[in-house]
Amino acid sequence: MQKTKHSLLSVGFAVLSHAAVAAESGFTLETVDPDADRLALQAFYQQRFPGVPLEEYVNGIYAIDPDSRKQWDALMEFPPYEFDLEEGEELFNTPFANGQGYADCFENGGIGIRQKYPYWNREEGSVKTLEQEINECRVKNGEEPLPWKKGDLAKVSAYMAFTSRGKVFEIEIPADDSRALQAYLDGKEFFYSKRGQLNLSCANCHLKGSRIHVRADLPGPALGHPTHFPVVRSKWGEIGTLHRRYEGCYRDTRSVPLPPQADEFRKLEYFQTYMSNGLVVNGPGARK
């Protein structure tokens, strides 16, 4: 399975460089084909922004808009997440009161594993995110869970992403548990559905609307959305998690709010990260 997927992946890249267009696979369990969706999404952007290499999409809007890129390159001379990263490493390595630590909760001591998140958890029948498991690790060891959107949780997550830089996302949808495909489909539907008083979908702004101004803002491509999180965003003036961003963009549609780590957001992350399979982890990141 793993083997086939990887060889398919490289075929995908090769075919696309000849500008073939993969078909999008629809919204029913019978038709949906995550890998076809992924290739179709890549094809969409390659046609929309010819000449931008796929691996650049980990850089969001800066992959496709030269003016923003120039400002960003200047910003990145002193990456604004450096302190958070240092603190994250220290937090990660500080034992809990019971002597255990984060390293004891994760595969490979928590190092170099970001590319496997989020994943389908068969026992719990739900999508698990890295942030969720960081907090579960704390609770299991008698510590208080951390707030989801910023602060220490984002810093620990940033450090874990940093140790995984350059690793290729390999989100799996186990074929022998149809609930996993359903979770992917729910995430996909969420992304494409119009919602809220403003009747906007994520796709409205991040596909057709990408690199087109909404007032002074330029929405970036959805391909690669999760790769660099958590992110230090100038507008926040601090580090924040992917679900903090989801919450904000979702609110911008004037919808009834959803909290970070809501079931809907975790499925959305599952869908979005699957779309980024083949791209590398480059978190933490910095954005305007």
């Binding site: 609307g209 087109i212 101004h213 909404v214 007032r215 002074a216 803002d217």
Partner: peptide, 23 residues
């Protein structure tokens, strides 16, 4: 911004137009 906010997507030839979008 808090009312129609049409300017976020439609430019218009009015001197008060500020940071018009082009969706």
């Amino acid at each position: 911004k808090t009312r129609g906010n049409c300017i976020s997507c439609h430019n218009i030839d009015d001197p008060v137009a500020n940071l018009p979008g082009n969706q």
